[in-house]
Each structure stands twice: as C-alpha cells, then as structure tokens.
Design a protein around this nucleic acid. Sequence first.
DNA 1: ACTTTATATAATGCATCGGTTATATAACTA
DNA 2: TAGTTATATAACCGATGCATTATATAAAGT
Lengths: 115, 115
Amino acid sequence: MQSAAAARLDAIFFALSDGTRRSILERLARGEAGVNELKEAFSITQPAISRHLKVLERARLIRRSRDAQRRPARIETHAVAEAAKWIEHYQQVWEASYQRLDLLLADELKKRKRT
Amino acid sequence: MQSAAAARLDAIFFALSDGTRRSILERLARGEAGVNELKEAFSITQPAISRHLKVLERARLIRRSRDAQRRPARIETHAVAEAAKWIEHYQQVWEASYQRLDLLLADELKKRKRT
DNA sequence: ACTTTATATAATGCATCGGTTATATAACTA
DNA sequence: TAGTTATATAACCGATGCATTATATAAAGT
C-alpha cells in the first residue's frame, strides 16, 4: 500500500491534470462561486461541473459551504502547497545530483589533463 | 481546443499523479537509469516500467538516450519547472484576492465602528 | 548465423474518466 | 402543499489508464 502522503499527492496532481479543473481553481482564486456560476463560465453541463468539484474536493483543493440552496466552493490553500513542496524537494534532489555530476566531470577533466 | 500550454500542463500533472512515476523521477534525479534497473527497484514488470517511462517522456519530464541495448532515461528539468510556474502563479492570484478580501473586511469594520 | 540482453509492442481485462441526458434531492417561496 | 431553484446522483458511452502475459525487435556477443 502507498503512504497516505503519496495518495494525497496522487489526488492533488490528478485534480490539476485537467484544464477545466485548473480554470475552475483560477476562477475560485478570485472568489467563491457556486455550481451555476461556474457552469456559465465554462460551457459544459451542470453535472459535469459538479463532478469536477468533487474531484477538487477529494484532493482538498477546495471546500464547499452552504448558502441556502447554493453550495459555494472556495479555495483551500494547503493542498496546492503540498504539491509545491514535492516539486521543490524534487528539484533540490536533482540540483544536488547535478552538482555532484559537475564535480565528477571537473575531476575527470583534471585527470585527462594530467595524463 | 485547449491551448498548447494547457495541454502540456495536463500531461505534466497527469504524469506526476502516479506514485510509481514520482518515485521513478526521484530515482532518476539521483542519476540516469535503464528500464531493467528501474524494474528491480519497483517490483512491477518490465512492460509496466516501459509504459511509465513513455508517460514521463510524453510530458517531457525525461529524455531517453542510447547506450548499446540500453536506453537510459534521464531527467529533463524544464517540464517540472512549468508545473512549478503554474502553481506559483495560481498562489499569487489567490494571495492577491485574499489581500483584497482583507481590505474589504477592514473597510467593513471601519464602517461599523463609525455607525 | 545463433544466442543473449535490453527494451518495445500487442493483446487482454478491469477500472476509471469526462462528458452526456434523465431523474432525484434539498432548500427556499407563494 | 405545490412550485422553483440549486445541486447531486444514476445510467450510459466511448476513450483511456494501469497492470498482466506473450511476443517482437534491436544491438551485442560468440
């Protein structure tokens, strides 16, 4: 079984892998919105929007609240920060390895000059 | 039709949405590896590894080269930077909106104090 | 030429995606 | 209670995902 952290990253990156969902997030970053408002902005049906929101909710990229019949969605910042953290860590590991390689090559050059 | 940039982000985030693929990337961040070496590290079959590499290649998260029969994979840094950039931009937009909301609330408070 | 090694591809099975239409539910309104 | 509004859920469809096993290809070695 995967770790819980890995499963969360799965859900987050998967949610971000769809252009419509990223657009929804960008819309929500400017303020909360309900299903109907989003439906207008993206010309797909209401059920399609509801399902996208469910995916975003599963990844905890959004939270939903209640306002009479409306169930406005709003951004939850923690999840995307998790994704950012993974990327950052990954880049650091790569950077470290790249620098080691750099030294290795420099070393190799020195040896060749000597012989 | 989606923009080319959006399609690239789709591919990148999708590639990152699988734990095995992220692990492969982390392994590759420490140095190039061929299909067989990866197969040992992750207990899945060789065709499964080949397919994961294809997904990573499609997202341009890796490049492959040739070394006799081996086709070692290595990290390509540009793609993950694109993902990082989207996240950063998104966070900034959210931050801006959050600050506007802050001001709005502060304003609202002032009004209430006055009345 | 034959064998070995490394990898790719095809065929298959089962699950999930992303959209649709049709229908159900929940919350308010007259 | 009946009607309206906002959203959710179910059923379906065609496409795709991810794993498997079996087979093909590419490059070297003998």
